[in-house]
């Protein structure tokens, strides 16, 4: 290339450019390099910003101090009390429900230290799992119908002294599970027709997404 250019009748200035050595310094000073660096920094910064914005309101790992140092490790882990014994709403409705104090007093009637119970004032627990108002989530659908273990979403709760938010609780996290999970259709006559139609067209098991589990109005209305 250099030789080819030398053969051409170039002016002095042009020759100087052609013969200038390619050094690290010249690369650093070049426009192309500056552009690439600026672009990469901007792109990375932008990505960090987007990730940051996406995590606004995501409280994975949130483990606030509660008004009573209640330990799931002792109750669910050590004493192996069924989750549903206290969280009675979990198979009935949308909320799993925090037990009312009288449920505590079923066992704690000997200890009788419940100021809340005696004064008829409820305990103000700090809410850990906060879904935005625009998302509808129903525990009964997942636990009673879907047969999902509490730990699938809430993590090893039986090992937690202080409860923390185990999962992301983002829409992506929801959708991901709906894509992967088989519908618990066995013995449930509601799904019979769907299973029959699904098996005609597909060999894989019927996932939640196959029966509209990714549709907007399943959770947003």
């Amino acid at each position: 290339m250099k030789r080819f250019l030398d053969q051409k009748g170039l002016s002095e200035e042009e020759k100087e450019i052609v013969h200038s050595p390619i050094t690290t310094g010249s690369i650093v000073r070049s426009h192309g390099f500056t552009f690439i660096v600026v672009f990469l920094v901007a792109a990375l910064g932008f990505k960090a910003l987007i990730n940051g914005l996406y995590s606004v309101g995501v409280q994975q790992g949130y483990a606030p101090k509660q008004p009573i140092a209640f330990s799931h490790k002792i109750h669910a882990g050590q004493y192996e009390i069924q989750c549903q014994y206290c969280h009675t709403g979990v198979t009935v409705g949308k909320s799993a429900t925090i037990p009312s104090v009288n449920v505590c007093m079923n066992c704690h009637n000997q200890i009788k230290e419940g100021a809340a119970y005696d004064n008829n004032t409820p305990i103000q627990w700090v809410r850990i799992h906060n879904l935005p108002d625009l998302a509808y989530f129903n525990h009964a659908q997942h636990v009673k119908v879907g047969g999902i273990e509490c730990q699938t979403c809430h993590g090893p709760i039986q090992e937690m002294d202080v409860v923390r938010q185990h999962s992301l609780l983002t829409m992506g996290w929801c959708i991901d599970c709906h894509r992967k999970t088989d519908v618990n259709s066995k013995g449930n006559a509601y799904y019979d027709k769907l299973v029959e139609l699904h098996n005609k067209s597909s060999k894989s098991a019927m996932k939640v997404e196959d029966i509209g589990g990714l549709e907007c109005a399943k959770c947003h209305y």
Binding site: P64, S100, N120, I123, Q124, W125, V126, R127
Partner: peptide, 13 residues
């Protein structure tokens, strides 16, 4: 910092 939300159950449900 997210606002602290309270969850208040019944005393006697």
């Amino acid at each position: 910092e997210a606002p602290i939300r309270k969850a208040i159950p019944y005393v006697n449900k």
